[in-house]
Every structure is written in structure tokens, then in C-alpha cells.
Amino acid sequence: MDKFIQNLLLGSTILICSSNLFANTLSNGDVIKIWPNLAPGSEHLTLQEEVIERSKEPEKIKDRAVTKVITPTLTAYLPENPNGTALLVTPGGGYSRVVLDKEADELAPWLNTKGITFFVLRYRLPGDGHTNKEVVPLQDAQRAIRIIRYHAKYWNIHPEKIGILGFSAGGHLAASLSTKFNEIVYEKIDTIDEISARPDFQILGYPVISMKDPFVHKGSRKNLIGDDTSVDTQENFSLDLKVTSNTPETFIMHATDDKSVAVENSINYYLALKSKGIPVEMHIYEDGGHGYSIRGTKNKSVAAWTDAVTNWLKNKNYL
């Protein structure tokens, strides 16, 4: 069962964070509503979230995705021994859905055993009729990391050890936050919005980066900004062109044989980071395809990616 729905049925805590409501305690599996009211640009909508099971054998392995998100949330995954590092996780889905298992729940055995507190963001999707559709995922990501940092002292988190981990189109969202954390994409609603939205580090897995031909993932572009947009708009959402000296330190991994999102997305982003003097480590693997996360790495060179990330986090003093 979808953890969000399961928590509602079991009566688990739903935390509505605002400037006058402090979540002093946090339990594993808690679901946090990131906007105190309807999210900006969604006030006119009445959507019913849908969870789709895509697995052919769901009794053996789940492969769920959510669509028609109207209430963006964070789901908390807490380690037994937190080390102060936190991650905002943005799963992929081509900006048409948000993956719930392989790039979300299934990260817990790895991340939590390393002492990392992580939060999976169920973000809104641009094709559902939201106003300013192309920025609603970024609105949710900015607000989410501000909430985590705002409550850091209550949640055993160091406010300067908060990163973002994004996969595929969620990697585009992660890189958007890392390059556009100061961009004003919604009006301030409370004191949480006075907190920095800049991640301290970013980890990108097979990310969508470019919205320009020839390396664009066409599905993500169509869903986010449309195929008939101007060159200026495509460039504004091509994140290799948005790197600045304030972009956080970065880890990138990608497979050479990725047939969905060309490896050049990661290569060009790496080169952009390098040109700005941003500390960056990139691992390009021979095989692995796309969307492997942890479950799809058996007998492939990408199986080493979690060890590589762990070592990088240790070297950066996040573990």
C-alpha cells in the first residue's frame, strides 16, 4: 500500500508546517504537508491523486507511481542513529508521474544505515493544470528544503548538511534547485520562506539536464515546458547553462548505455560545474541503462554507485 495512504488509514501524524506551528518531534513514516493551504498556483484545481502499479508481479516487487498530485508532501525516513546529514529525495517520472518505490522507499536500507535522515518529496506535476506549470516542481522543492532546514534543530539535522538526491527528471528538479535556489518562484507566505533553499550538496542519478536538442529527454521537455517553446525558454530550463559559482558541490552518476536520457546530459553538466570551479565528482559506468536506482544494478557496472556515493559523502564530511 502507498505509504502516504497507509499513514492516513493508520492515523499517523500529518504535520502541517507553518511559521507558528513547530514540529518538535518527527517519527519514521510521518507525512509532512509542505504548504499550510493549497499550494501556489493550485488554488483553482480539484484533483484526486492516483497511485498506479506498473509492476507485472506486484506481489514480488512493487513499481508504483503517483499522478495528479494536489497536496505536495514529504515522507520522513529516519535512521536509528542520525549523524546530522539529511537528504531531500526527488524521484523521477518524466514530469508526468512521481516514482514511489525504486527511487524512494527502497533507498532506506542504504541511506538510513549510514545515519542519513531523508525525505521523499511528492511534488506537483506540470501537466495537471497548475498556474505557471513549469515552476510548480521547483516551488515544491524550494519549500521542502526550507522546511527541513527550518526544523533542523528539532529533527537531529545539521542545517549545513542538507543535500538533495534526484533521479532522472527528479535529477532535473534537483539540479534546478541547486542552480535556481534564489529564484523567486512564489510569494513568501511565512517565516519558513526566509530560510535559504540552497542545498549544501547535490547527488544526481542519470539526470535530465538539457531541454535543448540533441540531448534532451523529449518527454520531460514536453511535460515541463512544451515542445514548441522558444530557444530562450529551453535555455532557461537547461541547467548546464545555469551553473554559477554558488552551485553546491556535486556527485553525478550515469550509464553510457542509457537510451532514455543521453549520458551527455551529465557530461555537459559536469563540464559546466568544472568551468565554475565547483567541486564535482562524476562516475560514468559502462552499462546499467536508465532508471536502475538500486534494484536494477545486479551484474552491471552501475552496481558500484552506492559505494561511490558513500565514499564521496565520507570524504566531504557528511558521514
Rank of each mutant, 00 (worst) to 15 (best):
E59D: 09
D30R: 05
S18F: 02
T90M: 09
C17I: 15
E59M: 05
V89Q: 03
L74N: 06
E43Y: 09
R97N: 01
D105Q: 13
S96E: 10
N83Y: 05
V66Q: 05
V99K: 02
L100A: 01
L26Y: 06
K102T: 13
N28D: 15
G94Q: 04
H44I: 11
S27K: 13
E80K: 15
L87K: 02
K33G: 01
N81L: 03
L74Y: 02
N83M: 08
N37L: 13
I32F: 10
I52A: 01
S19N: 08
I61M: 11
K33S: 15
I16P: 01
G84C: 13
E49Q: 13
E53T: 03
G41N: 07
F22S: 11
L78N: 08
G92C: 00
N24Y: 14
N28A: 04
S19K: 12
S27H: 14
E80Q: 15
S96I: 06
P82I: 01
I70Y: 13
N83R: 12
L21S: 11
I32P: 12
E59W: 08
G41L: 03
E103V: 11
E53I: 05
R54P: 00
E80I: 07
G92N: 06
I34A: 04
L21A: 07
N37Q: 15
L87F: 13
T46F: 10
P72S: 06
S42P: 01
L38F: 07
L100M: 14
L100T: 03
E103K: 07
T73H: 06
E103S: 08
L74Q: 02
N37C: 06
P91Q: 03
S27T: 06
L88M: 12
Q48M: 12
G41D: 05
S19F: 10
H44D: 14
E49S: 14
E50R: 14
K102I: 13
G94E: 11
A76S: 14
N28R: 00
I34L: 04
L21I: 15
S19H: 11
R64T: 00
R54M: 01
P40Y: 10
D101Y: 04
E103P: 12
N83K: 09
N28K: 08
A104I: 04
K60E: 10
K33H: 05
K102N: 12
E50W: 02
L15G: 01
K102H: 15
T73K: 04
A76G: 09
E80C: 00
